[in-house]
């Protein structure tokens, strides 16, 4: 296998907006406008951007929870969307999701063991004592103990609940985990533990991650590659080191510059690193001084390579 594990090609997701009066022109909100991403085996690709930039919609489309308006998603070269898409049951064994708020995503009336083993029964993988054995194994793997299987979600702390969320996602042995803000609901003191767990699991289980996050220090720590999204488009993408050491698009620079940095108290404000040198006639897209309207079609733009594995969006 040489090609990418997952490929998103020119993805568009549009939502209709209710009209203000019956004969008003139809309007659509273009949440995702032509996003292309590739995820290689064993990689962690992070999508960063602020709320409303389309990062969660992109993730939901990859998970099959949202129909794309156009564009395609390929897993090992085979389409995940459209007429030849696999059934939902088969998709569940390709990609799974870890949600931001683990408590909201766990059924409060089901024990952890029942929740984890029901997936195995549904997919006909294991049942009875074999299933219980697998549940115990998975709980140990995520840093819990086998007897936690008899407890209910409310009996766990926030960090433990996120471990359960991870165990739930891993039960069917998926190839890809989509992590939607996996630590932002957790205390600082717990974040490090969950990040370490995710990094360990990625290595031992040979997983590939798509992480959605707005916490740039976590992104820098965990990712191999980073895509920065702004108003439905990828405005800059590349190797994590290029993005953080030479952020070039004005939006990426603003994002990195806005992170409150405790070390700034000691050393003075840390300047945003230098930008990659660009030809003088290059115009960044979108222009941050004129806020984009997501309802209208705007000028053409393209991602231009500016270094090895580093691309930035410019106006055509």
């Amino acid at each position: 296998m040489s090609g990418p594990l997952l490929e998103v090609r020119d993805l568009h997701v549009h939502f209709p907006i209710s009209r203000s009066f019956p004969f008003a022109p139809k309007r659509t909100l273009k949440a995702v406008q032509g996003v292309s991403l590739t995820l290689n085996q064993g990689e962690c690709l992070s999508i960063v951007g602020e709320s409303g930039c389309g990062k969660s919609t992109t993730a939901l489309t990859i998970m099959g929870l949202q129909e794309p308006t156009s564009g395609e998603i390929l897993f090992k070269g085979k389409p995940l969307t459209g007429p030849n898409a696999p059934a939902r049951k088969d998709r569940a064994r390709i990609a799974q999701m870890v949600f931001q708020d683990p408590y909201a995503s766990l059924n409060p009336r089901q024990t952890i063991g029942r929740m984890l083993s029901s997936q195995l029964a549904l997919h006909g993988i294991a049942s009875g004592s074999d299933a219980n054995h697998r549940v115990a194994e998975m709980l140990t793997r995520v840093g819990l103990t086998p007897d936690h299987a008899n407890r209910f979600p409310h009996e766990f702390s926030g960090g433990q609940r996120q471990r359960i969320g991870i165990a739930r996602a891993l039960m069917l042995d998926p190839k890809i985990l989509v992590l939607d803000e996996p630590v932002s609901a957790l205390d600082v003191s717990i974040q490090a533990q969950v990040i370490n767990l995710l990094m360990d699991l990625q290595e031992t289980l040979k997983l590939s991650y798509i992480m959605i996050s707005h916490d740039l220090s976590v992104v820098e720590h965990v990712s191999d590659r980073v895509a920065v999204m702004y108003f439905g488009r990828v405005v800059e993408e590349g190797h994590w080191h290029s993005i953080f050491s030479r952020p070039t698009h004005p939006y990426t620079r603003r994002l990195i510059g806005s992170v409150p940095d405790p070390d700034a108290v000691l050393t003075g404000a840390r300047p945003v690193p230098d930008a990659e040198h660009l030809p003088s006639d290059a115009i960044f897209f979108p222009d941050l001084s004129h806020p984009a309207d997501p309802h209208v079609e705007d000028a053409p733009s393209h991602l231009v390579p500016i270094g090895p594995d580093h691309r930035v969006r410019l106006a055509k």
Binding site: V188, S189, I195, V259, D261
Partner: peptide, 24 residues
């Protein structure tokens, strides 16, 4: 000391490897 050590810090990762974070 634990709280300060446990946070991921922007600009602390080296190109060579992805290290573990210190846990509280």
């Amino acid at each position: 000391r634990g709280l300060l050590a446990a946070r991921p810090r922007l600009g602390s990762r080296t190109l060579a490897q992805r290290g573990r974070l210190t846990e509280l």
